[in-house]
């Protein structure tokens, strides 16, 4: 089993930058363009890693530590998340909370690094990032708690290996669907995808994620972009793990099924981005509260 877990981590490390590529190609195809190469994210990472870093004189060690700390937190989170109905590399009771707060730690280091630049522009981005993630967090946590209660365990690996089999047609189906929908919204919000934030815009007063990383350069920026790809993978595998029933499949087909699910989710994200406009900032909290209510409803149904 440990071999499967290691392979899953390696696959995630290797394939995560492909997800933004798939999203971009989907958007390009729907807009009638050819679009960037699928491997563009890898090229960007390679280019950035070979560059020098430029630090502003107003920044301190907080700014320098930010990208590495964020990436480290996401890498640990990757070891906790089960993929394709197999147990994760690290599994222990309570890793569910650790997962949510590792994401929080990554965000914290990113936000403090942005604030450290002293730029009012980045301060605005930091404020928005924190506001929206504070609203997305209850949706994620309540959903996880509902699933934990249904599965009778507080370890992500247990939850996902026990619940995916209770597939969607049998009892517990509505609960899982609600949680999956909430996780879908969290996936879009946390990854700064379109109804919440437009990843294509630069230097606009409404953007969130891009503004946080404006002052980073070279390998630091590469770390942040790789971290963003890993985050797509992490939150995506939470939603895919619920929706794709892989119970009882041998490791290799299960793995292929999981990968297919991840890339399908990326295609769906691309379709959403092509067909929807970004929400007005004042409407964003409403959607996130809606997602929280979905999770709450799932939890209440489990408790009732």
């Amino acid at each position: 089993m440990i071999v499967v877990a290691v392979v899953h981590v390696l696959l995630a490390l290797l394939l995560a930058p492909l997800l933004p590529g798939v999203i971009n190609r989907t958007k390009a195809a729907l807009a009638g363009r050819r679009g960037q190469p699928l491997l563009q994210a890898y090229f960007d990472l390679g280019k950035l890693l070979r560059k020098d870093v430029v630090y502003s004189t107003t920044t301190t060690w907080v700014f320098r530590a930010g990208p590495s700390a964020a990436l480290a937190a996401l890498l640990v989170a990757l070891a906790i998340v089960p993929f394709a109905n197999a147990r994760a590399l690290l599994a222990f009771p309570g890793d569910l909370l650790l997962f949510a707060y590792l994401l929080g730690l990554a965000r914290f280091s990113l936000v403090t690094a942005a604030l450290d630049t002293g730029s009012s522009f980045e301060g605005m981005g930091a404020s928005r990032e924190v506001t929206f993630s504070a609203l997305a967090e209850p949706a994620l946590l309540l959903g996880l708690v509902a699933m934990a209660r249904e599965a009778g365990s507080v370890s992500l690996s247990d939850v996902y290996t026990r619940l995916a089999p209770v597939s969607l047609v049998e009892g517990g189906g509505p609960v899982l669907l609600l949680v999956a929908a909430a996780f879908g919204v969290v996936y879009l919000a946390e990854n700064a995808r379109i109804p919440f934030d437009d990843p294509n815009t630069h230097l606009e007063l409404t953007m969130i994620h891009e503004v946080l990383i404006l002052d980073h350069s070279g390998p630091d920026l590469a770390f942040l972009q790789y971290g963003a790809a890993l985050k797509l993978w992490l939150l995506g595998s939470l939603a895919v793990g619920i929706l794709i029933p892989l119970h009882g499949a041998p490791p290799v087909p299960a793995m292929l099924g999981g990968l297919a699910g991840m890339f399908l989710l990326a295609v769906v994200t691309g379709v959403i981005e092509s067909t929807m406009a970004r929400l007005r900032l004042v409407r964003v909290p409403q959607l996130l509260v809606g997602a929280t209510l979905l999770s709450l409803l799932a939890l209440l149904m489990v408790l009732a």
Binding site: V169, G171, G173, P174, L177, L297, M301
Partner: peptide
């Protein structure tokens, strides 16, 4: 019957 019950629950949700 289980499937029907699941469907009713889904409709209620």
């Amino acid at each position: 019957e289980t499937a029907l019950k699941g469907l009713v629950d889904t409709l209620i949700v």
